[in-house]
Amino acid sequence: MLEGKFEEASLLKKIVEAMKDCVSSCNFNCTENGISVQAVDNSRVLLISLLIEKDTFEEYRCDRNITLGIGLGSFSKIIGNGANSDYLTIQAEDDADTLGIIFEDKVKDKISEYNLKLLDIDADLLEVDAMETDATITLPSADFAKICKDMKTLSESLQITVTKDSAKFQSAGEIGSGSVVIKPKTDIDHPEESITISLDKPIDLSFGSKYLSDIIKATSLSQKVTIKLTEDSPGVFEYKLPSGYLRFYLAPKFDE
């Protein structure tokens, strides 16, 4: 049996909101250590890797490994019925064909219960764990979201170049071109505003703006985003959870 209680429904709401426009359904793999998901979008360009560690939960138990096939649109509708501050418990028997979702209002004496029908999802897992990294950039997630939105107005591609002491984001299209350069900065009073860049090899990569638009839907999950880049390889965009992460692997664009 699986039972996981979130201190606040808002966390699961944000996670599902960040995923549902990229993949319509996916398997939630539940073990005694927590819940993980790997899912690829229809075009096979963007991969989502989610880990919600056991410590994220107020209470967690999973006696036997369970795979829950979940339609994210339906899941999102049901979780949307709870208030952000409610306790949210997900519950499934070992051979369940539904997932129980329970909201508890912390002030009123009110409990709401829903059942979501589970799906049979046949999906291949990809071996993404052994990736090398040539450059790592950490910056405020809101800044990254703004850069992606601003550059998308110019072009369907965003070029990222990284050198020893700066990262440059640039786009060029029919109406013109633009660029944003960021440099490392340590802000002791506001550590969430700090920017770090570490580099083994210079980077010049281009990514599809529409996929970046999907990625930045995770912005509310974390004040920071870490971008790991390797020449001629997918980029990794990581939003840390209180205990775990939501990562996106995005295949690059190439010169034809």
């Binding site: 360009v45 991969l47 897992l125 990809l126 071996e127 997918p234 295949a251 690059p252 664009k253 190439f254």
Partner: peptide, 14 residues
């Protein structure tokens, strides 16, 4: 003009 690659050209199946 740039072409979009897919993840399958980088990652094998588990």
């Amino acid at each position: 003009k740039k072409a979009q690659s897919t993840l399958m050209s980088f990652f094998g199946k588990k």
